[in-house]
Computed example of a mutant assay.
Amino acid sequence: MAVEKKAFVLRIHPETLKELEGWAQEEFRSVNGQIEFLLNDALRKRKKRSKDSTKDEPEASTDN
Results as ranks from 00 to 15, higher is better:
Lys48Asp: 05
Glu57Gly: 00
Gly22Ser: 06
Phe8Ala: 13
Ile35Lys: 02
Asn40Cys: 03
Leu17Ala: 01
Glu59Leu: 05
Lys6Asp: 12
Thr16Phe: 04
Gln25Leu: 08
Thr54Val: 12
Asn32Tyr: 03
Lys45Leu: 15
Met1Tyr: 07
Glu21Trp: 07
Leu38Phe: 07
Ala2Asp: 15
His13Glu: 15
Pro58Lys: 02
Phe28Gly: 12
Val3Arg: 13
Glu15Leu: 06
Leu10Asp: 03
Ser50Asn: 11
Asp56Val: 03
Glu27Met: 04
Val9Thr: 10
Lys47Asp: 14
Trp23Asn: 03
Glu21Asn: 09
Gly33Pro: 01
Glu59Tyr: 07
Val9Glu: 12
His13Cys: 03
Asp63Ser: 06
Met1Pro: 14
Ala2Leu: 12
Ile12Leu: 15
Ile12Glu: 15
Arg29Tyr: 03
Glu36Thr: 00
Ser61Ile: 07
Glu19Ile: 01
Phe8Asp: 15
Glu15Ser: 07
Phe8Leu: 15
Gln34Cys: 05
Lys6Trp: 12
Arg49Gln: 11
Lys51Asn: 14
Glu21Cys: 04
Asp41Cys: 00
Lys6Phe: 08
Glu27Cys: 00
Lys51Ser: 10
Arg46Ser: 05
Asp56Cys: 03
Thr16Leu: 10
Lys55Phe: 07
Glu4Cys: 06
Phe37Met: 11
Lys55His: 08
Lys55Ile: 05
Glu15Ile: 04
Gly33Cys: 02
Arg11Ala: 04
Lys18Ala: 05
Arg46Phe: 12
Glu36Leu: 07
Glu4Thr: 06
Ser53Glu: 15
Asn40Gly: 06
Glu15Cys: 00
Lys6Gln: 12
Ala24Gly: 01
Lys45Thr: 13
Glu21Leu: 08
Lys51Trp: 14
Leu43Glu: 15
Lys55Gly: 00
Lys45Val: 09
Lys45Phe: 12
Ser53Leu: 10
Gln25Ala: 04
Asn40Val: 03
Thr54Phe: 12
Lys6His: 13
Arg49His: 10
Lys5Pro: 13
Met1Gly: 08
Leu38Asn: 13
Thr62Pro: 11
Ala24His: 04
Asn64Ser: 09
Glu36Cys: 00
Ile12Trp: 15
Glu36Asp: 04
Arg29Ile: 04
His13Ala: 04
Val9Ala: 09
Ala7Ile: 09
Ala7Thr: 09
